[in-house]
Amino acid sequence: MSVLKQKEFAIILFVVPLLFILFNFYTGIAGPQATELINWGAYLWNFSMIIGTYSMFRKHLLTITERQKDWPYSVIMFVSFFVYFITGYIHTPTFQWIMDYVQTPIMMTIWVGAFTTFTMVFRGARTRNWLGVLLLLSTVLTVLRMAPIGEAIWGGFPIIGLWINDVPNVAVMRAITIGMGIGLLATMTREILGKETHYLGE
């Protein structure tokens, strides 16, 4: 068994830093060290980009070598990736040109996808029960709060819309945050007790 898959090793790696951060949170002792540990999360996020790039390369290389369906698109992906990457470092004007005349129009085209929001509304916004009615009603009131025409129609729309944003919305966001926190604590407890082993790939 790989040393990385031993429970004791995993507990040292995951649980001890977490306990350390909690200890710092409640006592304020060893602040810089706790901050450094939190920042490791951000650094790991960057490493996940490397894993993502590796997976993308592997998938598209396989698609090309095995001549799978739509393989020419994988070739385009590689060409785009390397041209964009290399010009960014070697020839900035070309990079800027790509940015202005290729990437921006493409991304704007993707944003035209916002059109589909309206067909989604047309097809999906159908109420089957009172909870659905409540959701749609709050949606409409929020829209009327955001659009200046709402206030022009009736001065109460912005007040109600703001209340929805400030009260139920905040309550739900806090409930989600607290729920996530409790879930995290439960997972940590299971890890300490050795009952949670998914992160070992088991």
Partner: peptide, 23 residues
């Protein structure tokens, strides 16, 4: 674009109502 936002907002609401009436 605020005028467009106004019209699009009303359009969105109209679609919600129409959708539910048809449903």
């Amino acid at each position: 674009i605020m005028d467009s936002v106004n019209l699009m907002s009303l359009y969105g609401i109209a679609l919600i109502i129409l959708s539910n009436v048809l449903f």
